[in-house]
């Protein structure tokens, strides 16, 4: 087909409506390619099916119509070559931080010595060295999120799927995490599909911003963001060209979120 790592083609999704035989169409034909090493952000109004797209990429949900291909292979079962970072950190509360990060390696049959090394390296990368033996309940929200990211990075998945990973964090932690993610994904030259509500976040982090319409949703635009890297996530407007890029996305997006006109 093409050289995209992840490719959605002709995706439609219907869900059974409560108390009715006919399904409700949520996604109405989406085509989207995620190229190797690219960081693609998906934005769209609430309920338009962003999380649903990620579920399909992970093989947890089969689209009603259309196919998702991962490196040319149609996804038909759980896709173990992706990593999933959910909105809530979802660490295993009964495992320590190190055991949490270790689990994907354990499940994939990596040897004990290598596991220890890679866990240490992953925790170090997200700035959590020394917290190995802490249980998630002993970590702050931001630290849990870092743990969740370390648990995904540790097995070097081919594609990282992130579902509003920083949505629940406070503004400061969020900026720090965005900065870290920018560095980490660049160092790992990772392919990332990143769902968010936040236009600023999308523009700051992504190489491409895909904009979805309200449901039944279509892809309104896929805008390339050609800002130089590394980008300053702490002062977005200091990035040369940020304003134009933001405007380009906002112009498309504003039509979808019914704003009341202010009479002057």
């Amino acid at each position: 087909m093409n050289d995209a790592v992840l490719s959605f083609s002709g995706i439609r999704q219907e869900f059974p409506a409560p108390g009715s035989d006919v399904g409700i169409r949520v996604i109405d034909g989406i085509d989207l390619d995620v190229g190797h090493g690219r960081f693609v952000a998906v934005i769209g109004p609430s309920g338009c099916g962003k999380s649903t797209l990620l579920q399909m990429a992970a093989g947890l949900l089969m689209p009603t119509r259309g196919t998702v291909h991962h490196r040319g292979r149609a996804i038909a079962t759980i896709n173990r070559e992706v990593g999933f970072v959910p909105q809530q950190a979802q660490l295993f509360p009964w495992k320590t931080l190190a055991q949490n990060v270790e689990l994907p390696l354990l499940l994939r049959g990596v040897g004990a010595d290598e596991r220890r090394e890679r866990v240490a390296a992953a925790l170090d990368a997200v700035g959590l060295s020394g917290f190995d033996h802490y249980f998630p309940s002993q970590l702050s929200g931001g630290m849990q999120k870092r743990g969740s990211i370390a648990r995904t990075l540790v097995y070097r998945p081919d594609v990282i799927l992130m579902d509003e990973p920083f949505g629940a964090l406070d503004a400061q932690t969020r900026m720090v995490m965005q900065n870290d993610l920018q560095m980490l994904s660049r160092d790992a030259s990772a392919t990332v599909l990143f769902v968010t509500h936040d236009i600023t976040e999308a523009v700051l982090l992504a190489d491409n911003v895909a904009i979805m319409s309200q449901r039944p949703s279509k892809l309104l635009a896929n805008i390339a963001i050609n800002l130089p890297r590394p980008r300053n996530v702490f002062e977005p407007f200091k990035n040369p060209g940020f304003e134009d890029a933001y405007d380009a996305v906002w112009t498309v997006f504003r039509s979808q979120i019914g704003i009341r006109q202010q009479p002057h």
Partner: peptide
């Protein structure tokens, strides 16, 4: 589901 994707 997360655990299944991790490889379980």
């Amino acid at each position: 589901n997360l655990t299944l994707v991790m490889g379980a």
